[in-house]
């Protein structure tokens, strides 16, 4: 097992979750998301059936489970990209059932996608600028009057440049996003999500298709989000990564939350290992077929 470097936020997150019982649906001291009875059926198949789930603010929570467990569907439901058959959930106390995805994002709950959605024929810089919220120049009339939005554009460009250099993409700023490698696209997507100034960042398989050399820096970036006060919820198959960076792990199988708890205890739970992670869970899964 890798050693954890303890940072103040990490310590705080671990401390906050230390006294919590590791049972599915357990109440958290300071939840940012609370979901109740969220059900999504595709024909006869119940893809998601979450009775009660809370996501702790300021922590990195991992959502794991076998393929087809409903992790991505649950992501889509929470962010408004898919509609549940029933259920309620709140973000910062605001009910989100039936709220359009762009409004969810504006509230501060921003997601990335499993299959990276870089905007190919836009420059890397334009990808970034697009993320900035409430831009004056995005109104159709003021768009025609550059003097009304030039200043804001400069500020956004500056913020984008800072983020890009943090993600080591500053030299690519003027390239088309399509010219980036798969891993760089993941980085760009994460950086672009940060342009929205999110409170909760939801990453759908941030490591999928990223080469090992980039993995470490991507992990660093995710930990960094917590240090900056953001909450992270991510779906991942790579167990080493889950163990390395998460403060709390939620296990889904067949649409239900079957276990949750601190990474060490959840991942050593024999029931979880056998039923949901398979016998070879200690080996990196990225060599396996998706």
């Amino acid at each position: 097992m890798q050693e954890h470097k303890l940072t103040p936020k990490k310590e705080a997150a671990v401390a906050a979750l230390a006294s919590i019982a590791a049972i599915p649906g357990v109440k958290k001291p300071d939840p940012i998301v609370i979901a109740d009875n969220v059900v999504r059926k595709f024909g006869g198949l119940t893809a998601v059936d979450v009775e009660h789930l809370e996501i702790q603010r300021g922590a990195i929570t991992a959502l794991i489970g076998p393929n087809g467990a409903g992790k991505t569907t649950f992501f889509n439901l929470l962010t408004g990209f898919d509609k549940p058959n029933s259920g309620n959930w709140t973000f910062n106390g605001i009910p989100l059932a039936g709220v359009a995805p762009h409004k969810v994002a504006r509230l501060g709950m921003v997601r990335t996608f499993q299959l990276t959605k870089a905007l190919f024929r836009l420059s890397v810089m334009d990808n970034m600028r697009l993320g900035a919220k409430n831009q004056i120049g995005e109104g159709i009339l003021r768009a025609l009057l550059p003097f009304t939005w030039k200043k804001e554009e400069l500020q956004n460009t500056q913020r984008a440049t800072e983020l890009l250099s943090r993600f080591k993409l500053e030299t690519k700023a003027d390239d088309f996003a399509a010219a980036l490698s798969g891993g760089q696209r993941k980085l760009l997507e994460m950086a672009r999500a940060l342009m929205v100034n999110p409170e909760l960042v939801m990453l759908d398989e941030p490591m999928a298709g990223v080469n090992p050399a980039l993995t470490q820096s991507l992990l660093g970036h995710i930990k960094d989000l917590r240090e900056q006060g953001m909450t992270v919820l991510f779906v991942e198959h790579d167990m080493d990564m889950v163990r390395d960076i998460s403060d709390w792990v939620i296990v889904m199988a067949q649409g239900k939350i079957v276990a949750e708890g601190p990474p060490e205890s959840v991942m050593s739970d024999p029931a979880v290992i056998d039923a949901y992670l398979g016998a070879h869970h200690d080996q990196p899964l990225d060599q396996e077929e998706e």
Binding site: F81, A100, V110, L119, G131
Partner: peptide, 9 residues
Amino acid sequence: EAVRSLGKN
């Protein structure tokens, strides 16, 4: 979808 995820209508 990417544009939606960034808060644009």
